Computed example of a mutant assay.
Amino acid sequence: MVTPPILMILGVPFEQWIDSSGFLVETVEPGSAADRAGLQGGDWPVIWGGTQYLIGGDIITHVDGVRVTDLASTLQLVRGLTVGQEVTVTWQREGEQMEATVVLQERPTLPADLEQYRLR
């Protein structure tokens, strides 16, 4: 989730903080619904609290007209989505509002998903 310090780093004017708050897109998987919608991930590596994040990507502000405000409500919203569902996503990119509608597809298994099953 975008926090005031991140908005400051990104140079978002204070009066635009409310409209620019939401879920920061760090990476976009090729071929994913986010990729098809045209969302862009970050390209600026920043270390925050000992963890590296990519910032500078799009900020998702609404999903099907529902405002993305905090992690708990965002997770609840995402858990309610289903494969094959048509979803409209609204986001901010460099101060401009953008929107696209996509059909959600099943997320492919990624190497990081299999890490828990790796023999040690």
Rank of each mutant, 00 (worst) to 15 (best):
T109A: 14
L104Y: 04
T51Q: 13
T88A: 03
D64Y: 01
E26D: 04
G80S: 11
T69I: 11
W91K: 12
V46K: 03
Q16G: 05
R93K: 08
L75D: 13
T109K: 13
I6S: 04
M98K: 15
R93H: 01
I18W: 04
L24V: 06
R118K: 14
P108W: 12
T82K: 07
Y53S: 00
S73A: 03
L114P: 10
Q85T: 15
Q116G: 13
F23H: 06
V78G: 05
A34E: 07
G56L: 01
P45I: 02
G49M: 06
R36F: 00
P13M: 07
A72T: 13
L54R: 03
D113S: 05
D19E: 10
T3W: 03
V87N: 00
P4K: 08
A33S: 09
Q76M: 12
L81G: 11
W17K: 06
P45L: 10
P111D: 09
V89N: 01
Y117A: 14
V89I: 05
G31C: 02
P108I: 13
L110G: 06
T51E: 11
L119D: 15
L81V: 03
T101G: 13
I60K: 03
Q76H: 12
I18E: 07
G95S: 11
D70A: 06
R67H: 04
V103H: 06
I47T: 11
Q40K: 12
L7P: 03
D64R: 00
Q52R: 07
V28L: 09
V2Q: 04
Y117N: 11
Q97C: 12
E94N: 11
